[in-house]
């Protein structure tokens, strides 16, 4: 019996079948996004959603256009973009830390974002900018500050996975402690706002936040594309990768900056959404293998799939008071995390 050429060559699933897997994942994502547009306090049938999409934001049916384009579309797009950013960032973090349990938040970036947001929520009235601008801006700046601290340690003490994790743990505890201090100082109604932000919710999404995150992705994706073979080589271990002429420390520092930008863009507008950046890379790797040419887009798409699915689930469980997606991904993520740990243990 003849064996297909790509099987004999040993290049795993051929590029074509991997592209097929990526396309199938995109179709699934598109279907979930339509489902997300259909669900909400005012349920929309599929025909209305398709009609509304055809008519555009200035369609004649003003009620439909308002619900679809002004309320739901930014949240749906934000879910997809945040999931995509966290999925890609998660895979890059797992690769540079050589740790399957790493995520975009491993180095304390989410704690920093929480601290930045809490600072503005607490002292925001004294600032010259509106809260909706100040909170994401502060969360973004705090995340980049945390990344800069880790980067500085990596610059002067070497960017080994151990050193990065140690620096990340220090940053995590620093910002968690500061965040706790702010929560301790806050009045009950302000504390409620801080806690709601930390839950991670798509209700904060606007067209502005969609545009900003899309801009960050447009900026970072070409830079990430340049690193695909370097990241795949790093999967061979530091010694082998360095032996292939790869400057491992410099690669880790470059990727750290890219992860920080993606994570900052994602959490600043939505709050902390856990487990997406941990689970999506594993699903992506299982579907397309270790080759980061396919692994990175697939991890991103699976991140988007998980987050949009969480959004649909949240609205189906409680249409009136939408459960924040951060809570749903955390609850759903625990069995997934246990699955990853058990699979790793039985390998």
């Amino acid at each position: 019996m003849s064996v297909p050429a790509h099987d004999q060559s040993g290049f795993g699933r051929s590029g074509l079948s991997r592209m097929g897997a990526v396309c199938a994942a995109l179709v699934l994502l598109a279907a979930l996004m339509v489902a997300d547009l259909m669900t909400g306090p005012a349920g929309l049938p599929l025909s209305d959603v398709l009609q509304g999409l055809r008519d555009g934001p200035s369609g004649e049916n003003r009620r439909l256009a308002t619900i679809l384009w002004h309320l739901r579309m930014p949240q749906t797009l934000m879910a997809a973009l945040v999931g995509y950013a966290l999925g890609i960032a998660g895979l890059m973090m797992q690769t540079i830390l050589n740790n399957p349990l790493a995520s975009p938040y491993t180095l304390g970036f989410s704690a920093a974002a929480g601290f930045g947001a809490a600072t503005v929520i607490l002292f925001g009235t004294a600032l010259p900018v509106a809260m909706w601008v100040g909170v994401p801006l502060a969360a973004f700046a705090a995340t980049l500050t945390a990344a800069a601290l880790v980067y500085l340690v990596a610059r002067y003490r070497g960017a080994s996975p151990e050193m990065l994790v140690l620096a990340g743990i220090a940053v995590l505890f620093l910002f968690q402690s500061l965040q706790s201090l702010l929560q301790f100082m806050a009045a009950p109604e302000v504390l409620q706002q801080i806690v709601f932000w930390l839950f991670g919710s798509l209700l904060k999404a606007t067209w502005t936040s969609v545009q900003v995150l899309a801009g960050i992705l447009a900026l970072t994706l070409p830079l990430i594309a340049r690193e695909v073979w370097n990241l795949t080589s790093l999967r061979l271990g530091d010694g082998n990768a360095a032996s292939l002429g790869l400057n491992v420390d410099a690669l880790r520092r470059r990727v750290l900056v890219l992860v920080a930008l993606l994570t900052a863009g994602a959490v600043s507008f939505t709050g902390t959404i856990g487990f997406v950046g941990l689970i999506a890379p594993h699903v992506g790797r299982a579907l397309v293998g270790e080759d980061h040419r396919f692994g990175l887009p697939m991890a991103g798409i699976m991140g988007a799939v998980v987050l949009v699915a969480a959004s649909v689930t949240g609205k189906l469980i409680s249409p009136g008071a939408v459960i924040p997606v951060g809570i749903i991904t955390a609850i759903a993520g625990i069995p997934m995390l246990l699955g990853v740990i058990l699979m790793k243990g039985t390998k």
Binding site: F11, G12, T232, G237, N240, G289, E290, D291
Partner: peptide, 9 residues
């Protein structure tokens, strides 16, 4: 090497 890539890859 602990990566799951194929020998050819």
């Amino acid at each position: 090497v602990s990566a799951s890539m194929s020998v050819a890859e």
